[in-house]
Amino acid sequence: MTPVLDIRDLGVSFGGLKAVDQVSFQAQRHRITTVIGPNGAGKSTLFNLISGALRPHRGQVLIDGVDMTGAAPERTKAAGLSRSFQITSLFSELTVAENLRLAAQVLEPVGRTLLPISRSTRALAKTGQMLDRFQLAHKRDDLVGNLSHGDQRRLEIAVCLASEPKILLLDEPTQGMSHGDTAATAELVRGLTDDVTVLLIEHDIGLVMSLSDHVVVMHQGRKLAEGSPDVVRADPAVQAAYFGHA
């Protein structure tokens, strides 16, 4: 079976710095693959290359076997890839429900683009579903700029999911969260694999080990190791480069 996401020999340089260099791995369907590595290892750059925010200088990105290397974000989105951001990037002047509906709008047929928004019933239903699933229903009409950090992080995931993607890239979803919120988010991410394949960047090692099916370790732009959490944890190179500092 073709892997849902296939990264082949991906690389990009900024000036002389090879931010991402010869990175290859695959994400298996309905599994959680986590990318870990110290700060500056190139994890977020990797996400930018996969999602189309940056164009790679070499290598390939295949989504469901289709070459999407260097495609613009709206095209990788159309191919079924949705991503969140390390620093929350929502529409702060719109309400919670409006943010979700904007994301869910892509589910509607093109013919409804110029019809009144109330006709977009599918997007509306999806919005309601997401509000319930992420326990945001009581805040549906709040402006996103007024939400708490934890709520914004949850909404960020909900917005990514509202368009029914095949692959979800989550860039440090628990960043800045309290301990309780982190546990709740982990539970939430675990539940996502019924619908999507998850590619995760995460710093909380405990979380990574308990949540991931597959772990990719990056160090100075390169892939240092990959495998199941136990295999990676036992790898001496990983221990030296990463856990040694932890």
Partner: peptide, 17 residues
């Protein structure tokens, strides 16, 4: 609504498709 989204956060718009 996509237009109003541009005003609020243009950089996120392409990632919504």
């Amino acid at each position: 609504r996509v237009l109003t989204a541009l005003k609020s956060n243009e950089r996120r718009v392409p990632f919504l498709g």
